[in-house]
Computed example of a mutant assay.
Amino acid sequence: MKRIIFFLAISIAYFGFSQQDSTQNTPSQTKSETTNLENGTVNEQYQYLLKRGGNYSANGIRYEVIRIGELNKFMKNVQDSLSIANKSLLSLRNTIAENTTEIDGLKSQLSETSESLKTLNEEKDSMSFFGVMVSKGAYRGIVWTIILVLLFLLLIFIYKFRNSNFLTVQAKSALANLEDEFEQHRRRALEREQKISRQLQDEINKNRAKK
């Protein structure tokens, strides 16, 4: 009797194992009538045992009588079903573990790809300036600053060159004027010297003639 009660408890506990299959069939169908312990779902086999068993009442309590051979067969089927379910569960766990490992690897690859893309974008938006990577905006700012400074220095150079050229022209003009004045002064001095020499020679000649 205890084994029967134990069987009923186990059967009820695993009743939900095949609930999905049992919902596909109605009590009015004839499939459960032809189901035996060699085929069918656990629930169908359970219903088969109930129909095959007898029953009696004692002290107001109804008892079900089931053959030991069929009960052992049913228990073996339940154990086989549980074994298959455990194998399926283990396979699913292994598949989940493999998928988790693969997902972690893909996440790692995605992270590396994101870092590489970030580096490429930074390199794309940057330029090397004397070995230092700077942004294109900063690079353009530095280049334009250098150009403006060079342009400013060029303007200063042009100004100084023109000023120096102007002073040089003035100096040359003043030197030419000075040379002209010196030449005129030299020519006049030479003329005076020649005039004085002639006068002196004339006086010498006069004195010689008187003697």
Rank of each mutant, 00 (worst) to 15 (best):
L153S: 13
F157V: 11
R187D: 04
S18Q: 05
Y46H: 14
L190Y: 03
T23M: 14
E70Y: 03
S81V: 01
L153M: 15
I196P: 02
K87D: 11
R3G: 05
N121V: 04
S116D: 10
I146H: 10
V65C: 12
T30N: 07
S111G: 00
V149F: 15
A97S: 02
I68Y: 13
P27A: 11
G141C: 10
F7G: 07
G40M: 13
G40W: 11
R192E: 07
I61V: 13
S114G: 00
F161Y: 14
F157S: 14
E122D: 07
T30I: 10
S116E: 09
Q79K: 07
A174T: 08
Q199A: 09
R187V: 02
N94S: 02
R188C: 02
Q19A: 14
K160I: 13
M127F: 06
W144I: 15
L151E: 15
I61L: 06
D104T: 10
G60I: 00
L200V: 06
S135H: 08
R67E: 12
R186T: 11
M133C: 08
F7Q: 08
M1S: 14
E38A: 13
N163G: 01
N43V: 15
Y46V: 09
L71H: 01
A58Y: 04
E70N: 04
R188N: 10
I96E: 04
Y48L: 10
K211W: 14
A176C: 03
N39R: 11
A85S: 11
V42S: 09
L175I: 07
R52T: 15
R208H: 13
L148Q: 13
L154N: 14
D202Y: 12
V134W: 06
L71K: 00
S28I: 13
L190H: 03
A97L: 02
L49N: 07
V143W: 08
R162K: 09
F182R: 11
R3N: 11
E33S: 09
L151D: 10
L153F: 14
K195C: 01
R140L: 15
S173L: 10
Q19P: 00
G16S: 11
T41A: 12
K195L: 05
D104L: 09
